[in-house]
């Protein structure tokens, strides 16, 4: 009799336990799907991100700092119709200088309207200094594109291995543009740099290739160098940085952010667009803002909690 009762209880209990397990599995799957969707959305987001960087320089005169906004590697992309979102963001940041580190166009696309319209709007906000990248060089020197004259007409300071003096606030600047790659540096860039480094003004050098600072310009007396080209390493890992770029392979030394050099600093923009099919992962398009002033940063302090 007792055995019959136990058998009946077991027969009732099995479907109950199965239901419970099924419910748990469904909940787990839904939760995992939600987490994965959220992470995927975050990782693949191509919403423009404004990043702020701070640079200390004793060369800045007076209490007022200097704000530079850095754009690079747009590759004819548009943020809003006619890039109005991008222009709006930049106008809101009230920069003193707008620096463009090249590759705003695509070598395989002769359309210059995007960059021309953008620069036309930017020069109304602040002086624009533009140093071309490999895509512009390809268009100008191999396809005969009138990019330079078009931008100069808009009022852009187009710097091809050239530098210009400017006074921002009370601080004298020498803003240079170096568009040679590391391979061609000895031939096209070394003489320019030798002359450029002599200045006592704040030396701001726009050079498209970050790998120039691996070796050729590693000891350059440049207060701030601004680069692009690496697209942040396309995929960015937390605490590691960029993963890959065709020029330098895996884990580029300078893939995105501010890096200290022996005699200055180099800033590498993660860029704003791309020209390959591979998506940017955990690597949102970056509009970088560099505030240069006399505020000193001490090193990080360990917390005791």
């Amino acid at each position: 009799m007792a055995a019959d009762v136990k058998e009946k209880e077991t027969a009732v209990a099995i479907p109950k336990r199965g239901k419970k397990r099924r419910f748990r599995v469904i909940c787990g799957v839904l939760l995992a799907a939600a987490v994965l969707t959220f992470c995927g959305w975050r990782m693949l987001s191509d919403e423009l991100e404004v990043s702020f960087y701070h640079l200390y320089s004793p060369k800045i005169v007076g209490a007022e700092g200097v704000r530079a906004v850095v754009l690079s590697d747009l590759h004819n992309r548009e943020f809003g119709p006619g890039n109005e979102d991008l222009v709006g963001q930049i106008a809101g940041l009230e920069p003193d200088l707008i620096l463009i580190a090249g590759d705003m166009v695509n070598a395989d696309d002769a359309n210059l309207n995007v960059v021309a319209d953008l620069c036309g709007a930017l020069v109304k906000i602040a002086p624009v200094y533009y140093s071309p990248g490999n895509h512009e060089s390809n268009l100008m020197y191999e396809q005969g594109s009138p990019l330079e004259s078009l931008l100069v007409e808009q009022g852009v300071h187009f710097l091809v291995t050239w530098s210009e003096e400017a006074v921002v606030g009370k601080t004298p600047f020498l803003i240079g543009g170096l568009n040679t790659s590391p391979e061609g540096f000895a031939e096209y860039g070394a003489a320019f740099m030798e002359e450029y480094e002599k200045s006592s003004a704040f030396k701001l050098l726009i050079s498209h290739y970050p790998n120039l600072y691996y070796d050729a310009l590693a000891d350059a007396a440049v207060d701030l160098a601004v680069c692009g080209h690496f697209h942040g390493g396309q995929v960015r890992l937390p605490l590691v940085g960029g993963v890959y770029h065709g020029d330098v392979g895996f884990f580029p030394q300078y893939s995105g952010g501010m890096y200290q050099l022996p005699h200055g600093a180099v800033f590498v923009s993660r860029g704003m667009g791309g020209h390959s099919l591979f998506p940017r992962v955990n690597n949102r398009p970056e509009l970088a803002v560099i505030d240069i002033n006399g505020r000193q940063d001490a090193g990080p302090q360990q917390t005791s909690s």
């Binding site: 006399g294 505020r295 001490a298 090193g299 990080p300 302090q301 360990q302 917390t303 005791s304």
Partner: peptide, 24 residues
């Protein structure tokens, strides 16, 4: 005066960010 102030001014306020101790 600027050269003199600059030496003094730059050190007036020093800022640092705390880094959490991984061990703790």
């Amino acid at each position: 005066c600027s050269a003199y102030f600059r030496e003094k001014r730059d050190g007036y306020i020093q800022v640092c960010f705390t880094a959490p101790s991984a061990v703790n």
